[in-house]
Amino acid sequence: MIEAAKTIRAGEEMLAEIERRSGQDVSSCYQCGTCSSTCTATLAFDYPPHLFMRLLQLGLVERALASRTAQMCYDCMTCSSRCPVGIDVADVIETTKNIADESGRSRPPKEVALFRRLFLRNVCRHGRLHEAGLLAWYNIKSGQFFNDLSLVPLVLRKKKVHLVPPRIRQRRELRRIFRQAKTKPGAK
């Protein structure tokens, strides 16, 4: 049972923080469900995106902060691109995740944290994502050596993944961006 008057008042401050940082108006969500219809990751979620928004609307911010949704959303942005109100739903979820991480309320699952770290290192090194490299590193570091290995011949043949890493110019500039980002508060 939700004591709505209490929860809404209790969650007011935290919701304002999420709205400020994401620049989104959570109250403008009219619960049509387009985000959830279109979401590619709900199988990994405990709350599909529209329910995640509803949690915030009812002031149940703590539930949202502790949710798997916040941690498992991989920002594909499909929900944001299809929202009829124009809410950047992914940004709301992402912001919630950031707040959860900063405040130590939740910790991403081990694999998620590892993937994020390897992903950023990969982009920092090559300037663009080198998928084959990321895949290899992830399998090695996570100990799941044979994960998805059967797909390798197929994706190579279809040229979805390239063995040779991409190269960009001015990689030095890129590194500087990364270095600067690390000095921002809340960055790890």
Partner: peptide, 13 residues
Amino acid sequence: TDTLIGDQVEIET
């Protein structure tokens, strides 16, 4: 109730 969240709602008003 709020059928959107799927839970009972109580408001002291």
